[in-house]
Nucleic acid binder design. Sequence first.
DNA 1: ACCTGAACACCGTTCAAGT
DNA 2: ACCTGAACACCGTTCAAGT
Lengths: 241, 241
Amino acid sequence: MTPASAPAARTPLNRARVVAEALATADEAGLESLSMRSLADRLGVVPMALYKHVSNKEELLDAMVDAVIREIQPRDVADDWKEAAREQVMAARRTMLQHPWAWRAIETREAPSPAALDRMEAMIGTLRSGGLSAPLVHHVMHTLGSRLWGFSQEVFATGPQPTDPQAAQEAMEMMAARWPSVLESAMSTLHQQDTAVGPGCDDETEFTFALDLILDAAERLHTQGWTPGPRSDGATRVGAP
Amino acid sequence: MTPASAPAARTPLNRARVVAEALATADEAGLESLSMRSLADRLGVVPMALYKHVSNKEELLDAMVDAVIREIQPRDVADDWKEAAREQVMAARRTMLQHPWAWRAIETREAPSPAALDRMEAMIGTLRSGGLSAPLVHHVMHTLGSRLWGFSQEVFATGPQPTDPQAAQEAMEMMAARWPSVLESAMSTLHQQDTAVGPGCDDETEFTFALDLILDAAERLHTQGWTPGPRSDGATRVGAP
DNA sequence: ACCTGAACACCGTTCAAGT
DNA sequence: ACCTGAACACCGTTCAAGT
């Protein structure tokens, strides 16, 4: 039907379109809605067609994560290393708030993508520029963990609270009876729903508290001339358990 | 065939057996090998039989996580709150080293199980006993994050290193060219494979560095009379981004 | 040479039919 | 009343057959 010289009416599939549509699906409907079959449907092709452009689903997720990490754009800040490091992490967080599915995809990647290595290179460079030793920077990067990528793993995200007032009352009474300290702790701080990555209480206040605690501690250890080996508090700690 | 008065030759299925066999499967073959169908096979029953004892796979995983968390048994230590808190976390870590699949199951739970609440109650109680205020304890619990459960999320676990010497050499040269600081940082610290939870470098050294950093910082904030509100370093920080 | 329908080897879970 | 085979509604991926 179509003349051989004219391209097909449908835009030909390519890797960029596949990844872009996958990102759109995750943004709109969540990561659990993304399957190779549903993605093929959205693109109006047969599932097998996708395998021309990504070798499998894991590679598609790799590409999606790479694209999201590439969106992280720290603002230019003063040349204080700690403030610069803080801004880089907060920039990552801004990106994660825009892609609520991304943290789940990031934490299942096996190796860092090029964009991830670029991000790590920038962060490590910033910390080293402050004079922190390579081993200290290495430990600080581990201590930051997922916070480098703008989220903190909320292990037991306090799930959706019971909306029924009576059920809420009963849950509270059970907590008070068996877990009074947990209840007191939960009540002691209000959480901001609107600045949280995902469910639970990984909100701005908790995130910045932990971030500043880590960066301040890193600065202190550096100033005190930390070196690898014994515990920083001076207690002896020799040998494996 | 079997007299009606005698029990069936096969031990009748019950919830405890289902959960125990699921734990054994995960310990032996990993969490990815655990399916409702494979578990039923191991127990010599039809898949549907499991649904008499667990309402679905998520509830089975809940029960498995509850059982593992119940295994965490901190040793009795001196009445110093920081040393007690440290031992509780290290006890969790010892348990995770014995069940390498457990961290993946824990991080996908939606709500804390009774055993998890008991663990949190003990930890919060210990921190409060040191005189730390309820809001400070709340923030410290968030800062600990998954470390409370004995693991730290290794976001980009440096995957299996290339065993082929030439491939390793090439990878190193590529890193040196594009990500020199990442390479320098990686080279600066050796990791202990035998004390790591899962792949990557969540080993004893990294884990205790971060744990001590957090507990030391908590102690310092407490001593300095930390109260909720402005940033601990005195910098002003008002309003949302 | 290129594309793809059908199939393969799985999932978790439902449900009606059988004893 | 109890149990379960077959089926449902999915997966990701392979592969041989068709054009």
